[in-house]
């Protein structure tokens, strides 16, 4: 194991399999794409240690533990953090999304009634910061360790308690926090790699989503009932 990967595991907490061993072989391109794109998949973009714009070390460690528990490394894909999910969340929280873009923010505020959705006075960055602090506090109080220092079985138990709303956080509903967290993790795993997650299009390879250019006018009938495969292409491959 290289120093770089050891450092990553120090930063992010829950390490997993190394990337090279876990990437499934690239599927052969079914046809030449319309737009020019490299014929070989790009080398894995995982660099030596992720750097963060806005997350603290403790926040990054918590999110790494979450990402690797929700998306564990196995034969289907590398772990969530190795796929860049924590970097994705960092970039989102550091940008317009984290600052509360596209949210009506005027008061007065009340806890949400059934059916009215998001009512937090905090923008997403503040909400996740408060949520992570509450979750870590609860983990230490309940299990004696922060989430990233629990083993995999322990992390699963902790996340399930949050998912069911059985984890009693201080000042924030664990279930609401979990729902928002799961959404961000899945966005990071499945979105176009230009946002920092889904490195090497790992999730698209896992499910068989071809990505771009998605011009199937001449293919939908020709491939009807037959498995169409293409080495997935992202926005960056055409830029």
């Amino acid at each position: 194991m290289s120093d770089a990967i050891q450092r990553r595991q120090f930063l992010i907490g829950a390490g997993g399999a190394t990337l090279a061993a876990a990437v499934p072989p690239a599927a052969p391109a079914a046809e030449t794409p319309l737009l020019s794109a490299p014929s070989q998949p790009a080398a894995p973009q995982q660099a030596a240690g992720d750097s963060f714009q806005i997350l603290s070390a403790a926040e990054a460690a918590f999110l790494g533990a979450v990402a690797d528990t929700m998306i564990p490394a196995d034969g289907l894909s590398p772990s969530g953090s190795d796929c860049g999910v924590v970097v994705y969340i960092d970039r989102q929280l550091a940008g317009a999304y984290g600052a509360g873009s596209r949210i009506y923010t005027a008061g007065p505020f009340q806890p949400p009634q059934r059916g009215t959705g998001w009512q937090s006075p905090l923008p997403p960055l503040g909400f996740f910061r408060a949520g992570i602090a509450a979750a870590d506090h609860w983990c230490v109080a309940t299990y004696g360790h922060s989430l990233d220092h629990l083993d995999e079985a322990g992390r699963i138990v902790a996340l399930k308690a949050m998912e069911k709303g059985e984890a009693s956080f201080q000042g924030i509903a664990s279930k609401l926090f979990f729902v928002e967290l799961l959404q961000l993790v899945m966005e990071g795993f499945f979105s176009d790699p230009i946002y920092g997650g889904n490195r090497d299009k790992a999730s698209w390879r896992m499910v068989g989503y071809p990505g771009l250019p998605a011009t199937y006018r001449e293919k939908i009938e020709a491939w009807r009932g037959k498995r169409y495969e293409q080495d997935p292409q992202s926005i960056a491959d055409f830029s």
Binding site: R102, E187, D192, G211, P213, D237, F238
Partner: peptide, 15 residues
């Protein structure tokens, strides 16, 4: 225009 219009996060999620 392609390729940017095929961005699920930007258009479908961030609306």
């Amino acid at each position: 225009a392609l390729p940017g219009i095929r961005d699920e996060l930007r258009y479908a999620l961030r609306q």
